[in-house]
Structures are given as structure tokens and as C-alpha cells.
Design a protein around this nucleic acid. Sequence first.
DNA 1: TTGAAAGCGCTAACAA
DNA 2: TTGTTAGCGCTTTCAA
Lengths: 354, 354
Amino acid sequence: LIYYFYDAIIKIRTGSYEEVILIKVNITDIARITGFAKSTVSAALNNKPGVNPETRDKILKTAEQMNYIPNELARGLSSKTSATIGVIVRDITNPFYARMCRAIEQIAYNYGFTIIISNTDGIPDKELNAIRLMIGKMVSGIIVDISGNDLDLFFELRKSNIPYVLFGACQSNVDADCIEADDYKGALRAVEYLVSCGHEKIGFIHGGNDSIYSQRRLNGIKDAFLKFHIQFDDKFILHKAKKMEDGYEMGKRLIGMKDRPTAIIAYNDLVAIGLIKSFEEEGLIVPDFMSIIGFDDIELMTFPLTTVRIPEYDMGVEAAELLISRISGKNTGKFQKIILDTELIIRKSVKSLL
Amino acid sequence: LIYYFYDAIIKIRTGSYEEVILIKVNITDIARITGFAKSTVSAALNNKPGVNPETRDKILKTAEQMNYIPNELARGLSSKTSATIGVIVRDITNPFYARMCRAIEQIAYNYGFTIIISNTDGIPDKELNAIRLMIGKMVSGIIVDISGNDLDLFFELRKSNIPYVLFGACQSNVDADCIEADDYKGALRAVEYLVSCGHEKIGFIHGGNDSIYSQRRLNGIKDAFLKFHIQFDDKFILHKAKKMEDGYEMGKRLIGMKDRPTAIIAYNDLVAIGLIKSFEEEGLIVPDFMSIIGFDDIELMTFPLTTVRIPEYDMGVEAAELLISRISGKNTGKFQKIILDTELIIRKSVKSLL
DNA sequence: TTGAAAGCGCTAACAA
DNA sequence: TTGTTAGCGCTTTCAA
């Protein structure tokens, strides 16, 4: 084993095998070795036009040999943008967001972008931090699932001058690109289905006042009630559950109610799972004890849950495409609002009362 | 609404309300406004000692007023490290990894680090890319779940001189810090339990040759067989399934077999879910048709799956703590190998044949 | 306690 | 087609 030191470069010779390793090679090193100027090296490395093919070849080959890894920080600082897209979600642990992130990552990758993810748990403070952090990292754009009505966040976003796309919940009073699912219609259809199965005492588990989804779903439910002349009963709107554990608690509460709904529309599948677990623990079977409809259509479910499918993957794709079209400047039109359709997936968690 | 332009600063006056907004304020702006030097501002902002409290106050206040957001790229470039930890996993869509990432994020956050995640799907090329990208982003450390035996990856990691921790699968021949679960013992216990329920024809769904987990689990199974004098039958080792869809396919294959095992140990819970779905589709009930034991203990399961719990959250915590102790230089000892225990969670997916 | 100056690695004018 | 130069925003000596 022999080492040769030469500038920043070490050659290691093991038997007949010789390898050139480097201590953090940078473009200055490559420039020195190849004899070209830094700017030429940079141009060659970035596939810019106006570089002699032979020159480019030589530089590329040398870079490869020296195992050159571009310093993205320097690149970003100099070019005033890192090829990065920031994604701000509530909780990557929710398969819904996990799949959405992968969709975004996929599209981003195709366009040469990297993504960074921040979890906020829907806490406005964390959301603001995440946005600021991303601005600090000079991301090219941001896709954000903002929980509430906190206009400060939009303000921060707007000021930053970074393109951004709102995901999932677009408020009418905010000027921004946004992608959403048709929660309203999804909820409407859910109720229609329940009614067609003979249910009238229909409950809804609300995700909390910071959840625009819940608001829209509730609107759908109310309108469906109106349509079918069902009396809207406030006590069947249960606050609040967002996660599985919340759903579990809510299940116990439901069990304890004297006057129970015959069917529940859960805020999402996670909450529905919580309900089911909670019921089954007491030997109560879904849908015999109570019918349940979820939202999302998480694919990991083994339980045959009837649910309103939210096309999270497609939403991620749309969001990424839209954002990148803004970043690249190909899309300078006015703000777009893309609404994807939802679908009621009928399985076996709703009992027919007819 | 009145605007005042003053250097890089805009004052907006709305009625009696005046707000100072900024167009990307940097420390030079703050220096100019406060009258101190850039270096003083930097010191104050970073809470370094040797700054007059009044000076610090003034600088901090001004920074806040001007809505200063530090440029992390410049910071990183200058200080030669971004306070970032890179996490390389196969697929964040797998709740196992999602939870692990959140654990890492939590610990990282406590220490002032941010994390960036890369999904590799276990493809060596992507793994290498991810590592290089992270080096390029000057991460402070890397936590990586490398799939295979690809020594190039370790080599790249080693060369980079960045601290790193291997997650999940530590090979004996690699010198590195690593965190793993006791897969071997977990598998052993699974078989013990199956045997205690009267099973002898026990199958294993292998995750593929690139899966060190599978290898270790298989070893546990084989040794348990040895212990109970059960004949090891190669045809009951089924290659290969890693995801739910794979499990689904495998289920169909199992249904078609003439000589079936009475119990299956699945590569992980996702595969187990796939099996269950596949069976139930044909009206075959678990565990009546076949007993199943999974690995991981995904909490979203509604099905009462007996499974070997892998403490992914704790593993994430340990990995992050260890990595950060390396980064901070507090831990300069020799490489550590932390093995966390697994636990057999008995539910209802195994039928007693006794 | 504060300031001046250099430099991190790169890109982007512009000049040659 | 290539080279020179300046500068991105910050930290980090070192001097005052």
C-alpha cells in the first residue's frame, strides 16, 4: 500500500491497482489539473454551450477520476437558487402525506430538483419556522399544506418571492396556486350512499377548527342532509380527531353515548382505524355496531373500509408540475386552482338498514 | 397605503400602522442600519460571547424588525458545515421508515439540526447518488439504511470524512457505527411460538438477497428448526416480497401450491397485509387457511396480526443520538454497535393446531 | 468589545 | 472558445 501525495490528491497503490482519491476536490483543483480556468470547468461541468467538446471531455473525465462532488451550497449561494423544492406537511407518518411526498419527489427528480420535507404537526409556529428555514435554504419553490387560516404564513411566503403551491386546502380569499380534492362532493356522496342504505342518524368526526378539509366536508354533509330533508343534529358532530389515537378515544366516547348515530363519517381513515380498534376491543363489530365511512383510502388497510378516496398521489404530481412550471417561468399566468375529483370506494363497513 | 423606499428596506404605512418589510435582508443590511460591523452582527446573531449586551440587543431587535432570515447556504459554505443530518432510507411510504424518520427528526431538532431525507428503493445507484448529494450539501452526518452489500457505498461514505451511522443492517465486516434490531432472536421466537402452536410446516417469505434483515431472520428460523429438530425445507423459503403488492402476489402463489406450509413468517407487516388481502379475496380466512406472523408491528393495522415488533422509533432515537455525539466530537471512541431487542406481539393470526 | 479583511466554492458577467 | 474578475452571504481569524 503506497500513498502518493500530490496537492490535494492522494494516489493509493495496492499491488498493481492504483486509485486516485481526493480530499474534497473542488473545481479549482480540476482547473489546476486540467490547465483550464475555473469558469471553463464550471461551464463544462454544467453542460453549458460554448465549450470545446475535447475540453469538455477532458474536464468531465478528470472530474470523474477525481471523484468530484459539486458543493451545492456554493452553487446555490452563487446562483441564488438551490435546485430544491421544500415540502411542508403535517406528518409524514400519515401514509397520505408519505405517498404525496413520494409523488412530488418523483416529479421533482425528473426535473432535476431535490426535495426537503418538514413536518409541522399542524402547529402554526412550526409552519412558520419551516417556511423561514426553507427560504434560508434558498429553495426554488415550496409546496405547503398549511393547516389553518393563519394569514401570516401566506404573507411570509408572498414576501419571500419564492413560488409556492398550496396543497389540499385552498381558501377562497388567498391568491395562490393550489391543488385540492373535491372534499365537498366526496362528503356529499358519502351521505347519499349512507341514506341509500337507510341511514338517517349520521355523525361526523370533525378534524378540528384548524382543518379546512373538515369544514368543506361538513358543508357537503350538511347540503346532503338538506337535499334529503334530514334534520341536522349538532350533537352528532364530534370534535375532534385527526389521528388514530384520537379515533380510538372517540370510539370509546361513541360507545358511551345513549343516543348514537347509526353511521359515522370519520375525518380520515386513520381516525376510522382508531374507531374500529376501539369498537373491536369491546367486541363490537363494524358495521354491525356502527357503520363507518373514512376519507383518504389508505392502501395499507386490511379492514374493508368504505371510504372517500382522495387522489393524494395525483395531487402530489399536479402540485409538483404546477410549481415547477412556475419556477421555470414557463407558467406566468394567473393563479391556478386545480381540483381533483374524489371517489367513494364501497367496501364493507356500511350496513344496510333496509 | 404609503411606501417608503430606503435602501433595501420598504416601510409600509397603512393608516396609523407602520411596518418595516425588507427585500431579503442580510447581515450587511443589519450592519449598515445598526452601525456595527458585519462580524459583530454575526457574533451577536450567533450568540457568541464577547459582545456587549446592549449591542447584542440592538442587533437582535433590528434583525427581528427587518425580518432577517439567515442564509443557510452562505452559513454552511463559510462554516464548512450545514447543521443538517442526511437520512437515507428505502421508502418513506413504509410506515416503519416514516416513524423512524420522525424519531430522528425529533432528536435532531433538539440539537438544532435539520434533516433531509432521500428515498432509494434499495437501488444501489440511487443510494450512491443520495450519499453524494448529501456530501454536496455538506451535511454534518448521515444515517443510512443501506440495502445490500455494496462496499462502494461505505467507501464513498468513509472517504467523505462525514460521520455516519448504519441503520438496521450492520455487516460484520464493515467498521462503522450501527444500530440494529435483534432480527435473529425475533425470528427464533416466532418459530418457537409457531411450534408451540403445533406448526411444523413453516414457510418464510424472503425479502430478497439484498436484504440483510432477511438473511438474519432466516438464520434465526433455521436455528430454531435445528433446535426443534424440524426438517428444513427449501421450497418453503419463498423469494421474494418486500412490499404489500409483492405480498399480494405471493398470496396467490401460496394458494396455488399443492403442498403448503401451515404457517408463514412474512418478511414484514406490509407483505403480511398483502397476503391477508390476497387470501381474503378468495374467501380464505387468516388464520384458518394459514397462520401468519409479520415483522415490524405497524400501528396502522386493523387486522390482529401476530408480529415481531421492531422498535423503529427507538432505533431512530439511538441512531440520531449516536450520530450527533460523533458530530459534536463528544464521542470519539471506537465504533459502536447498538442492538435493540425485538418482541413477539401475539395477536390472532396464528391458529393453534393442538 | 468591535472592525477589517480574507475566504468558503461556485456562477456569471465580460474581456480577451 | 477560454480566462479574468467580481461577488453570492456568511464565518473566522486577527488587529485595533
